[in-house]
């Protein structure tokens, strides 16, 4: 198996999407039960591919990139040699699973857990920032294209915990479960009906955005956690509700819904966030 060396600790394994026009049979398999050396373009061009360092050197020659030497690693060289032969170099079969290897420039397999958690947390904070102050530049949509569900999960659980701590003891369990169920089912339903109305939006991305838009309500719940006065709670909750809706609508306005049904698409968002704001208000 000398030819399969590009799978190293520096590679990410992503299951290859099967919606492109490359036929699966056309992708050469890297597994050869006979054990003989396969005559693949990879092994032909890099004779000592068993050593990642040497193959990286060969690649660096093929695709010199002085800015980021790490990027010109395994994938770069093999792809440079294989592109001429029309083979997608990042795809291979590992067992029965077709995988795609990509090198993102960061080694996330060997890093400590704290660094992983910190990077997730940083990304969540960055995404919250992007969602709550939508930029017109389109950068926001680009960032949200790599959606994650960590942030929505954290925000949902945070809201549920804050509401249930504040509740009387025999109510905390139903409040927690109803908040979690409401947020998860509600975001799914809102996303589905946006698609049903003809909105051009991807499913998980919309769930991610709706989840991130709960962030102002977390702030409201935190404020309501400390201030019991109704004169403080009502303006804060209303303000945060408006903020949520504004942020969500700002995202959904690019979904190409017809103008005479925009209200139909916005109304479920209004209802969804209003119920959450109301639960914060009366806790």
């Amino acid at each position: 198996m000398a030819a399969t060396t590009p799978i190293s600790s520096a590679s990410h394994f992503i299951q290859a999407d099967d919606d492109d026009d490359i036929e699966e049979d056309a992708i050469p398999s890297m597994i050869y039960p006979g054990g003989g050396a396969p005559v693949t373009p990879l092994s032909a061009s890099t004779p000592n591919a068993g050593n990642p360092l040497s193959s990286a050197k060969g690649k660096a020659r093929a695709a010199p990139s002085p800015l980021n030497p790490a990027v010109s690693g395994n994938i770069g060289s093999s792809s440079a040699s294989q592109a001429a032969n029309g083979v997608n170099p990042n795809r291979r079969w590992l067992g029965n699973v077709q995988i795609e290897t990509r090198y993102t420039g960061v080694d996330t397999l060997d890093e400590p857990v704290t660094a992983t958690l910190a990077s997730i947390l940083l990304f969540v904070l960055y995404a919250i920032d992007i969602v709550l102050y939508p930029r017109r530049s389109g950068e926001a949509r680009q960032v949200l294209r790599d959606y994650d569900l960590w942030g929505p999960l954290m925000l949902c659980l945070g809201l549920a915990v804050m509401l249930s701590i504040n509740a009387p003891p025999n109510q905390s369990l139903p409040i927690f479960s109803s908040v979690v169920v409401l947020i998860s089912l509600g975001s799914v339903i809102v996303t589905l009906q946006t698609q049903l109305l003809g909105g051009r939006v991807s499913f998980l991305q919309a769930i991610c955005v709706i989840g991130y838009c709960i962030a102002p309500l977390d702030i409201a719940a935190l404020v309501a956690f400390f201030f019991k006065l109704i004169y403080i709670r009502v303006p804060v909750c209303l303000l945060c509700w408006a903020w949520c809706v504004w942020a969500a609508v700002n995202f959904f306005d690019g979904t190409k819904i017809e103008t005479n049904r925009i209200l139909l698409a916005v109304y479920p968002l209004l209802l969804f966030y209003f119920i959450l704001a109301w639960m914060i208000l009366i806790q």
Partner: peptide, 26 residues
């Protein structure tokens, strides 16, 4: 069972040199 066969080159693979991710969404 060496059922390995070469395929013709297609135009999807000629972006192998620059390691940019291409988005096919928009």
């Amino acid at each position: 069972m060496s059922n390995y066969h070469q395929i013709e080159s297609d135009d999807r693979a000629d972006d192998g040199n620059n390691l940019e991710f291409r988005s096919f969404l928009g």
